[in-house]
Design a protein around this nucleic acid. Sequence first.
DNA 1: ATGTTC
Length: 395
Amino acid sequence: MSQPHSRRESLPPSTPATVSVFASPASWIESDALDQCQQVAALDGMIHVAAMPDLHPGKGAPIGAAMASTVLYPFLVGSDIGCGIAVFPIRLKRVVPERLAARFPDLDRALDPERDANDPAWAVVHCEIPAGHLEGLGTVGRGNHFVELARVDTVCDSGHAARLGLDAGDLVLIVHSGSRGLGERILRAHTEVHGAGPVSDPAAYLAMHDDAVRWGSLNRRLMAARVAYALGAEPSEPFVDQCHNLVEVHDGVYLHRKGAAPGDGRDVLIAGTRGTSSYLVAAHAGPDANHSVAHGAGRKMSRADALRRGRAKHTVDELRRTAVGSLVVCGDRQLLFEEAPTAYKRIEQVIADLVDHHLATPVATTTPLVTYKTPDLGPTHRPDRRDQRRKRGRV
DNA sequence: ATGTTC
């Protein structure tokens, strides 16, 4: 077993917080992200920072880290409070990716209780809408968010998979999304007064935070139902739904997760990329890892780099029809380059690091068939001037 | 990641 402390940085004696990086030397971790871990470790009240193998630099705080502290810092969770990944079983009669891709609903358009009163997706809502927040309900958002139809590929632990009711060849919907404008509003309200400082009233923040976590989970269920109906299937209960951006309170300690999934005995889907497999794992991370595991492959390049280098390296067509034969529904060219599989680390290495450090055990892999990002260029699309210029050139 | 955008 490789030691999680092999990369423990030397800390000034005045800083009691420890930093553990759960990655092998073979895994590339940007030094900026490690610097951010040290900056977090130096915050008042910080106890322990556990960095996952998908660690990469974020805005202020690193992404792919679980941070335990006696003080609650909203910026360590970020604006997308409640973001997570849910996996739903889905049964379809015919699986023709091209046909299915064309049937995905418009997940940029929110569900409106009045206008869409008859939408059957509302059936999955069994509670009040958290915070009464209707804006953006049922929408996927942007960035690394997606809704993916995938097929269970390799079953690594047949007993565990059977307990979940999963078998090789089964179809699933993977939904990665969060609390949209609600979480952003909650962080902004804090930041406008306190910046990156701690909350003065943890209970008040946590009440709003918990609403955003519930809203994010409900949003994933609503989207899964919208997609299931649109593809001619019935909605289903998720067998995995884990939030990787949140704060948990344990015995007076605030455990901030930022791109780090709960790893204490739960099953987690660790997302690959739009063009590579994802891994369903049984997570069993202990206190050294702040009870957390990775949440995905992790970015290897910044969005700006991915855009610049991707334009030289890829065509739009190869990003929309991937190496594994899956389709990517995405009418936003820039996003397509930013989210290119080559902009991410290899998911196999991330999983290997978790296994080597005894944080997780693979249960099954999934292979994408159709990944939805944002509505495709429709038949009514009229390219603007810039698009026309690109069309004549490479892109 | 988000809402907003002269």
